[in-house]
């Protein structure tokens, strides 16, 4: 791709067989991208429904998709409130993960000593399952919100930290030399060279962290297990389980999955918007 090349428009574009095949493949790709998953969904829902009807499975064991949908509508007010609570914890945890992850990554790249001192502990926090840590957190942290937030943060911050550290260290070595020759200060090098170099890596980590902060929030809610006002979707699932209200469990599950998809899509869109002008990952090329 080069703007140096002649852009003069040919009055009668010649479309050869290869071009036509590529254009057809592109059109099919565009259609297939949406219709195929929708088709799989419809077939799965149909089979699910038939399995329930043909085997006369009671709704407290496996409700049909129709009943789940009905429950979703009927319990919408309660489930939506719960979803907002979970979403709030998730987004707050993600925000803290970004601040903590990027902040630590910057500290690590400014000083090898700090990195050597703290990186092993970041890894230990990451590899220890959150379900094992969460009960302890709720013993020592009085505030329920703070406890949930801490759990979700512990799960989510590592991908941001690890990717951003990698990105900050991946600045082109010739550009580093150039900054040195031009007498750049440490702050200028960070701002004008390392942070932009790290942006694609950071955004990759952010997309993973988005999903993980939702997982962290849900797991923490399970462990916290307190009800009443301010309870999130995970608590609603637990509660519905105790009451054998399986359709509500499914409805809450659908909301959690939907929330995860929306978070991922939102972060992917953000990534595309920030990188679309210059980064290889966001550029469309002819195949």
């Amino acid at each position: 791709m080069s703007i140096a090349e002649d852009r003069g428009a040919d009055p009668a574009p010649i479309v050869d067989a290869d071009e036509a095949r590529r254009a057809r493949a592109r059109r099919l790709d565009q259609i297939g991208k949406w219709t195929l998953p929708a088709l799989v969904l419809l077939v799965s829902l149909f089979l699910w429904d038939r399995v329930v009807v043909w085997n006369e499975i009671p709704h407290y064991i496996l409700p049909g998709p129709g009943l789940v949908f009905e429950t979703l509508i009927k319990d919408w007010a309660m489930l939506f409130d719960a979803a907002l609570v979970t979403l709030q914890i998730t987004l707050m945890a993600l925000a803290v993960a970004v601040l903590g992850g990027v902040g630590l990554a910057i500290l690590f790249t400014q000083s090898r000593w700090i990195e050597m001192s703290f990186y092993p502990y970041a890894v230990i926090l990451q590899v220890t399952p959150i379900v094992a840590i969460a009960p302890l957190i709720f013993i020592y942290v009085d505030s329920r919100i703070a406890g949930l937030l801490l759990c979700a943060w512990l799960v989510a911050f590592f991908p941001v930290l690890s990717n951003t550290t990698l990105g900050l260290n991946s600045a082109d070595h010739n550009l580093r030399d150039l900054f040195r020759i031009m007498g750049a200060t440490r702050w200028q090098r960070l701002r004008y060279l390392q942070l932009p170099s790290a942006l694609p890596y950071f955004l990759g980590g952010l997309r993973i962290a988005g999903g993980l902060s939702l997982i962290g929030a849900v797991v923490a809610e399970y462990v916290a297990g307190t009800g009443g006002i301010g309870s999130g979707l995970a608590f609603r699932i637990l509660e519905a389980g105790y009451r054998l209200n399986i359709p509500r469990m499914f409805a809450a599950l659908i909301l959690i999955a939907g929330m995860g998809v929306i978070i991922f899509a939102g972060l992917s869109f953000l990534s595309h918007m920030l990188l679309r002008k210059w980064h290889e990952s966001a550029l469309k090329r002819e195949r």
């Binding site: 010739n174 150039l178 020759i181 031009m182 007498g183 932009p196 942006l199 210059w278």
Partner: peptide
């Protein structure tokens, strides 16, 4: 001083962003 020197590498070494 630093302004007295300009450098061109084998690669263009531009900031892609």
């Amino acid at each position: 001083d630093t302004g007295d020197l300009g450098v061109v590498f084998q690669e263009p070494t531009l900031m892609p962003w």
